[in-house]
């Protein structure tokens, strides 16, 4: 995952420009969302220390997921140089995740945080503030008509940027099925893909998403190998 070697400059063709609740943003191929006018970068569901969380329960997954996720985050931050970073919840896979974080990663994270506002939105995996890390922990965050919260609210939802569901989308073309992580939006609300290296995904047409989007306006911004592909909701398959 040698992300840094690629040309990922903001506004390149590898990102896709969208408008959510009147705010312009770009969906970055790596799964981050950047509001240029606000200088705000959002990432969701980092699930740091998921590997070690599984290891505690006997599945000895490779212990490199935190390194991969943070490397990717560092590259995104270096590209966009945001003033504000919002981590949209489930930043750590479990409540003790921050405490297990290796010193090297803690230091790296603190370097990324230096000189910018950093918000940890509380998630279901990590309802408490991460241990010994700077940044402000919030339940939700309202900025310029947008609301950043982890779990999408069942009601309202205009201007909501949420995570939690790990959306992916699937199309069938020429008798073959392609599934990719995606940003899902109907222009009012946007649900972000999971950013973490070991995070799975859930089809955006699953019943867990029921009532969240205006079906006719739904678009999935699917994350391909080299660019983001905007796909209309009518082409998607469950």
């Amino acid at each position: 995952m040698n992300v840094a070697a690629r040309d990922m400059s903001p506004g390149s063709s590898q990102a896709d420009a969208i408008v959510v609740a009147g705010q312009r943003a770009v969906c970055d191929l790596r799964g981050a969302l950047y509001f240029r006018d606000l200088g705000l970068l959002a990432v969701s569901d980092l699930h740091l220390e998921k590997g070690s969380s599984f290891a505690r329960r006997g599945a000895l997954l490779p212990p490199y997921d935190t390194a991969v996720t943070l490397q990717r985050l560092e590259a995104v931050i270096a590209d966009y140089r945001p003033r504000i970073v919002v981590s949209l919840g489930d930043s750590f896979h479990d409540g003790q995740g921050a405490a297990r974080l290796h010193e090297i990663f803690r230091a790296g994270l603190e370097t990324m945080m230096a000189g910018r506002d950093w918000y940890w939105v509380a998630g279901n995996h990590d309802p408490e503030a991460p241990a010994d890390l700077p940044g402000e922990t919030v339940r939700e965050l309202a900025v310029a008509g947008l609301v950043f919260r982890h779990e999408p609210a069942r009601k309202g939802g205009e201007g909501e940027i949420a995570g939690h569901l790990h959306p992916c989308a699937r199309i069938v073309q020429r008798g073959r099925s392609v599934r990719r992580r995606c940003f899902a939006s109907d222009g009012l609300r946007l649900i972000m893909p999971a950013f973490g290296a070991f995070t799975g995904s859930l089809n955006v047409l699953d019943k867990a998403y029921a009532g969240l989007f205006r079906r006719e306006a739904l678009m999935a911004y699917m994350l391909g190998q080299a660019r983001v592909y905007p796909i209309a909701g009518s082409l998607l398959r469950a």
Binding site: M1, K50, F54, L61, P62, Y64, D65, V68, L165, H166, A194, A197, F198, T199, G200, S201, L202, D206, K207, A208
Partner: peptide
Amino acid sequence: SGRQVTVSADLIYDV
């Protein structure tokens, strides 16, 4: 629908 909580072998492979 349990997909999002399991870790797919592809992701482990990449890492």
